[in-house]
Structures are given as structure tokens and as C-alpha cells.
Design a binder for these strands. Sequence first.
DNA 1: CATGAATGAGAGTTCATTCAT
DNA 2: AATGAATGAACTCTCATTCAT
Lengths: 242, 242, 242, 242
Amino acid sequence: MASKAVPSETQRSKLERKERVILEAARAIFVDHGFDGARMQEIARRAGIGEGTIYSYYESKAELMLAVLEQFWDGLTLEAEGVMASVQATDFFDRLQALAQYHLNTVIVNADFINLTFALRRNNSEVSVSRDHLRHYVAVFDRLFLRGQDRGELRTDAVLWQARDIFYGSLEYSARSIEMTLEDDRKPREQEPVVEQMVSLFRAHYGARPEREAADGATLAGLSRQIEQLTEKVDMLSGRLS
Amino acid sequence: MASKAVPSETQRSKLERKERVILEAARAIFVDHGFDGARMQEIARRAGIGEGTIYSYYESKAELMLAVLEQFWDGLTLEAEGVMASVQATDFFDRLQALAQYHLNTVIVNADFINLTFALRRNNSEVSVSRDHLRHYVAVFDRLFLRGQDRGELRTDAVLWQARDIFYGSLEYSARSIEMTLEDDRKPREQEPVVEQMVSLFRAHYGARPEREAADGATLAGLSRQIEQLTEKVDMLSGRLS
Amino acid sequence: MASKAVPSETQRSKLERKERVILEAARAIFVDHGFDGARMQEIARRAGIGEGTIYSYYESKAELMLAVLEQFWDGLTLEAEGVMASVQATDFFDRLQALAQYHLNTVIVNADFINLTFALRRNNSEVSVSRDHLRHYVAVFDRLFLRGQDRGELRTDAVLWQARDIFYGSLEYSARSIEMTLEDDRKPREQEPVVEQMVSLFRAHYGARPEREAADGATLAGLSRQIEQLTEKVDMLSGRLS
Amino acid sequence: MASKAVPSETQRSKLERKERVILEAARAIFVDHGFDGARMQEIARRAGIGEGTIYSYYESKAELMLAVLEQFWDGLTLEAEGVMASVQATDFFDRLQALAQYHLNTVIVNADFINLTFALRRNNSEVSVSRDHLRHYVAVFDRLFLRGQDRGELRTDAVLWQARDIFYGSLEYSARSIEMTLEDDRKPREQEPVVEQMVSLFRAHYGARPEREAADGATLAGLSRQIEQLTEKVDMLSGRLS
DNA sequence: CATGAATGAGAGTTCATTCAT
DNA sequence: AATGAATGAACTCTCATTCAT
């Protein structure tokens, strides 16, 4: 950088490439051995560089881990958005199925990192992925859900946060269960039923019901939502006062 | 002589007490710093004993961690069973609410350990809590659900594993969300709505529906409860303002 | 001791018996694992007593080792003297053969201790067997040799210390060689030839030679013995082949 | 780049020099305190390097000790061969005297290591110098002796292994005696008489006797050698059959 | 006197980080 | 900029010795 006034594009891209190589190597090693179990030497060897070189890209092991985790979550977000973009269907439930499929598989494949992200948030203040990175990921679901409501496919009185918790929570719990049965049982649990059941739960529970009693039902549901919104306002007010 | 052949009750209980002290200290330190971050010296200091003493109770750090984790999960199971035993109601949904309440709170308080349990299962084969310990815990839900089906309160075509995944998965995900809002936001998410929404999800989705007014009745009851809570909040708010 | 003015014979002998038990156990463990490799706990367990008890007999591990070593050398001396006493023959060379046989076997069986004795003399000033104990042992040879000179069986111009060095040194070196071939070779070196060659060396080199035919006689006798041994081997071989 | 692909001669020799420094320091500390008594920290301090550095040259304390011991024995072998090469005389006994002188002095100076070598072979399987290293050393004597037989200076019926055991065994035993008198006595035993007596023993006992009865003696000796060769053949035959 | 649970200093070893080349 | 040899603090675990019972 300092050696030339304007680093050529080649130099810049070279550095960026090396940074990617380091991140990739670090990711592989961190996944295999966890944060404490990973050794910088092994990461360097896998990246095909010297140990010291890592330190001209990242200040410490913790910072490297952080970069890996943030890249991981950003990657997830991009992938999830890619999945949403590539789904032809406009129907909410078809799109939900695609997202569920993607998320379930992702969680199974990357369970280590998802665990690590939250495990490290607690007892290693140095390695704490910012909430924003995590929120961006779940925002994919939020957008899908809100659009479903806008399009009249979902009940308008549905509570977003609950739907979100159910969606991600159940899938992650299922992933863990699936993985545990993989370890030594004969018949491992499959992924498809999990996805299907999730979609059918959403269809039954959050799907709009265009039937006759809609009037009364809608009235009650509407009341409920109004109350909830009011509650929220009161909460915020109370928050400001404290 | 006699003291050797038959260790007196005093001696035996002394040893057992010391073992408990060690486990308790170990648990505290492991929670604070994770497995690798925990120092045996600190555990010893907290237990008020010498470092070497730990090793006459547990062969290694890993074994100690394992004992802590298994004791933790066994404790959770016992507590959950205790909660179920102490709930007077026989109604499935009331009992479910009690269990959800307990689990949500437990998961918030002990998120560290739950994370640790699964994080260690992956990259530290030495510290791997047996599946049985984990299964015993979720069996509490399974028994409750099956009984609900037997009593005709739940649809008999419901899939147990899905219900279980939704129950535990959503609650744990919610707990994580709640905790993240606790860290630095003004208005933390509350536990009660999570529990209530979970119960009402089960009621709507898994509940047997013999009568048609049930839906309305339930909704009205729910509304009533929401209003009550809102009232309470407004009261508190006005209390603060005065 | 203090509890009664005069400890009864029973008490005294009890203590002595326990002391013997400790020494025996210590010896076994020290031989198996060396000084540093031996653990006091294992010695106590083998002696069938508590760990602390050892310390009321010996101040430290080093002192215990010292006691073991001194007892060992005293035992060797007594045994060697016993061998000398039990040999009927008065002929020097017959007696020498008995002593050589005993020493060679002893050195093979107790090589560990002999090594340990001298290894510890160097780098562990605490565990240093007094020279007297060692001298007492070799004095057995000295007396035998001097008597042989007195009786006119040995040249009077022979140098005692050289004869002694050759006797003990060669036998110990042979023992080491024999042991090394024992480890993994098919055909281990035997003890008998070593003893015989030692005796014949002494006969030839230190024996008084009054008669001239003695040389021939001795040679012929040697040939006769060699032929006998060969016959025996051939017999055994032909036995196996049949 | 160039520095990586081809480590300059300077770099290579630097590493080799450091390795020598470590070995030298380790040797000094091991000699002073024995294997278990030696502290890695002290070795590092003496070598003027950090503790961890040792471990990039040797995997463990045991491996370091092994390297020290093997270097020691290889060094002895080279020195002994050097002594043999530098002796002008072709006469067997002159050459033997040189070797005896060298060995006796070596054994006195390095008694620690020789003891350690064999002490560790027993109760520490990790630190066991290969038999080959030890055999190479004694092969110096074997070659000298066989050449003496070829040149007609030594009796052809002499048994090599006995001569070897006597040579090395006596000298080592003498060394030990000399050392023990050094410790606190007024008049220490000297080295020269030991060497001289050893040479004169060989001259008298193994030297060829060109005197008159040579005819008869030779015949008898020849018979003896024939028998011995036959014995050896029978042994080999028996070895093959087992 | 005998015990063995408790101790804690000290051992070998690891590995993130530094820095001379 | 890149390297990897060097570092040494910090780790887990051992075990001779002590001492309350």
C-alpha cells in the first residue's frame, strides 16, 4: 500500500484473494475443531501461507473468528435471498417451502457455526457477532411473511415474531434431532417430512380463511390485533419513561 | 480399623457434600467461561479446595464437565417432572402452559449450558452427553402430549415429533431472541406472550374441535386475557408517573 | 513405644514384620519402575497398608529407597557367603565357579538394582548407598582369592584388585549382553559358558603351575568337556528331528 | 520467496548449530540430574533459548534424551575409531593399550551416561537406545581382536565374546572402583596400572605362544577350534529348526 | 499408631503471537 | 509483504508428603 501511491487493481485483488483464502481455511478449521481447538498453524497451512501472514490481515485469532462468523452469516443471508429470488412461484406457501428446505439443510450442514455463534456470544466477549448480521438473515423470512399478509394469503392478525420463532426454531430443533439420529441409528429422520409439516402448519394456522364466519372471526381477530398494537405502544411509552 | 471397614455415615456424607461443592463450582465456572476457557484452578478456588482434590473425584477436566452436564440435564428433567406433578389442572393446555413457562425460563437462564452441551457434542468427543440424558428431558413433553391425545383433547392425527420440535424449538429460539433484546435494548421482549402464543398455537392446531363455538369462546377468553394484561401495564405505568 | 514402658516382644516383632513387608513391597515397585517411576501409593497398596504409614517407618521416599538398596546389598552378601559356605569342595576353582554362577545369575535377575545403585549414587545425593555395603559384597571374592593364594592354588604375584575387577566386571558385562540377546533374538546367550570361561581364565592366568603336564592336562580336560557338551546338543537335536 | 524455496546455507547451519547447542545443554543437565531429575526449563536456560523452542527440535523430553544418548554413543564410537586410526603401531597389544586407555578414561568421565543408558533401557521403554548403537561401539574391539588373530598375534582358539566381556567389563568395573576411591579417599586408584594389567592379561592369556611345544599345543588348540566351529554349526542348525 | 483424603508446588507440553530476516 | 523460528505464559495433571480423624 505504502510502496506505491495508488495500488494497482492487480495488487488490490491479490490481497482480496488472499483474504478470501484465509477466511476459507479458517472456516474449515474452526468448523472441525471449534474456536479453542483450532490452531493458527493449521489454518495457515491450509491457506498455504505463513503463520505470521494471517496477522497482517487479522489482528488476532478472535478477530479472525469474528470475520469468519460474520462472513458466514452474510453468506447465509445472500444464499437465502438467492433462493427466494430463484423461486418462480409467487404463492406464499411454495416460497415458504423453498426457504424451509434451504434453512433446514443449511442448519444441518452448518450446525457447528450456528452453535459457535451463540456459544461464543456468551463467554467470549471478543468474538461476538453483531446482532445486525443475525437480524439480516431472519429478515428474509420477515419479508416473505409480510408479503404473504399483504397479498391476503396469510391472516392479518398473525403475530410475526411468533411465526418467525416457530419457523426458525422448529427447523433448527428438527435439524438437531435429525443429526442425532444420524449418529448411530438405523433409520435416520428425513428432511422432507419436516419441511412439509412446517408448510402445512403455516397453511393451517396462518393461512387466511375466506369462509363465511370470517365476519365474526375477523372482528374478534381484529380486536385482538388492535389490543396488541395498543399494548406495544404502551410498552414503548413505558420504555421511554424508564 | 472400624473406620476403614465401614466408613461412617458422617464420612460418606462429607465426601458427597464435597462432590456437590465441586460440581457446583465447576458448573459456575464452566458457564462463565465455557469448557476451554474454564481453569481448573479457578474451579478449585471457588470450591474452596486444592487443585489436586478435584482429581480424586474426577479423572480429568473432561470428565468433570461431563458430570456437570449430565447433572444439569438430569436436574432439568426432574424439575420439569416436578412442574408437571405440581400442576393441579388436568386440562392439557393448562399443563402445556406450565411446561412452556418452565422451559422458556429454564432455557433463558441456562442458555449457556444448552449451547455448550451441543457445541461440545460436535468437536469434543470426550465431552459428549449421552443421548439418553437429553431424551429423558424431552420425554416429559411426549408423555404430556400422548396423554392429551388419549383424553381426546388433541387430534389423534397429530404428529408427535413435529409438535415436539415446534414446542421446544420455538421456545428456545424465542429465548435466544429475548436474551438478545435484553443485552442492550430498552424494551426487552417478554416471556408471557411467548408462552401464551405457544399454547394458543397448540390449541388451534392440535386441539380436537368438537364444538363450533369453541373457536369463538377461545378467542374471547384470549381477548379477555389480553385486556387484563394491558390493564396491568397501564396501571404500572400510571404508578410510575405519579 | 511411648504408650508402654517396655514394648512387648509381640509388639516389637509386629513392627519389624511390618517393616519387612514395606521393604519388600518397595523393592518390588522400585525394581519395576525405577526410583522416580515408583509411586508411594502403589508401594503402600502392595504392602497392604496406608500411604501415611510408610512415613512412620521411613522419613521419605529417598530414605525408603536407601533402605531397600542397603538391604538388597546386604542380602546379596549374605547369599554369596551362604553359597560359599554350602560348597563342599575346598578347591579354589570349584568354589570360584560356584561364586561366579551365583553372581552371574544374581546380576541378571537384579540388574535393575545394581544399575539403580550406581545411577542414584551420582545424581541423587540423598540416595547413596554407603561404600561399605558394596565393599562387603565384593569382600566375598577377596577372601576366596586370598585363601586360594594361601593354599598355593593361585600365583602369589597375582594382583587382587585386577582379579576382582575382571571377575565382577566381566560377569556383569556378560549379564548385560545376555539380557540384551534375551529381548528379541532366537538364540539367547547362555549362562554356563560364561561361568566356565571365567573359571578357565582364572585357572590359566592366576593358577599356580607347578607341573608342566598341567597345561596339557587342563587342555585335554577342556576338550573332553567340550566334546561332552557337543554330544549333548547333538542328542537333543536328533531328538527334535525324530 | 528465494528464502523459502532454498534455505540459505546460513539459515541451515544456524538451525544445526542451535540443535547442537540444545543437545549439549541437554546432555549436561541429564548427566547432572538423570532423566527424571532434569528440568526442561533448565535445559532451555542453559541452551540460552526459550522452553518452547526445544519442542520444535524434539517432540518430547524422552526423544531429546534419546537423541542425546544416541549422539553420545555414536560419538564414543567415532572417538574410539579415531584413536585406533591415530595409533601408529600395528602391534595388537600396543593398539589394545590405546583402546583400553581411551575406554577407561571415557568410562570414568561418562559413567553417568553409560549407567543412564542401561538404567533407562529397563524401566523406560520410551528412552531405549537401540542395540545397534551400542553394538557399533564394541565392534571397535571386535575388529581389533579379529585382526590380531588374523595376524597370528592372538590364539586362534580364543573366544571373542569372552575377550570382549573381559575387556569392557573389567575396565568399566575398574572405572567405577576408581571413581569411588576418588570421592573421599586419600590415595585414589590410578588408571595406568589398570590399563597395563589389562594388556598383560591379554598378552598372557590370548597371545599366541610361538614356543617349542607349539606343535602339540597347536594341535590341541586346533582340535578345540574345530570342535567349537562344529558346535556353532550345530547351533545354527538347531536355530533354523525352531 | 494407622489411615487416606487433601494438598499444591512443580512437571511437561502447547500455541497465539512476535519479529528478524 | 511474507515468513516461520522463537517465545514463554499458561495450561492440565501428578504425586510425595501432611495431618485430622
